[in-house]
């Protein structure tokens, strides 16, 4: 299960609402805020792919201006990939599509 540390930039006036919303996300922990609208966020996800989706969702939240990664640790996932248990998908121009009912 990867772990990531992020800095979320929220609009100052929306800081509390954004923090509340972040805390609803499974595997999310808020580790501090400041009066500039910064939020220190730690996410734990089932996979890197899963975490990307969560992160992408956060960038679309009302009141969030940006989200930046500071730290990412994925040793469990590396082991799973090495053992052939998972085959990562990543949307890096090469392959980025999966079945999806709109």
């Amino acid at each position: 299960m990867p772990v990531a540390g992020f800095v979320v930039n929220a609009r100052r006036e929306d800081l509390k609402a954004v923090v509340d919303k972040l805390q609803e996300i499974k595997g999310a922990e808020v580790h501090g805020t400041d009066d500039k609208g910064h939020i220190v966020l730690v996410l734990e996800g089932d996979s890197g792919e899963e975490m990307e989706k969560v992160a992408a969702g956060i960038t679309r939240m009302d009141g969030v201006i940006s989200l930046h990664l500071a730290y990412f640790h994925a040793e469990d996932e590396v082991e799973k990939i090495e053992r052939g248990e998972i085959k990562p998908r990543f949307s890096f121009g090469r392959q980025h599509e999966k079945s999806c009912v709109l």
């Binding site: 772990v3 990531a4 540390g5 800095v7 580790h31 500039k36 220190v40 966020l41 730690v42 730290y71």
Partner: peptide, 12 residues
């Protein structure tokens, strides 16, 4: 470590 790395960037 994840929290500390992020916190350090913004001085929190």
């Amino acid at each position: 470590s994840a929290a500390a790395s992020a916190a350090l960037l913004v001085g929190i």
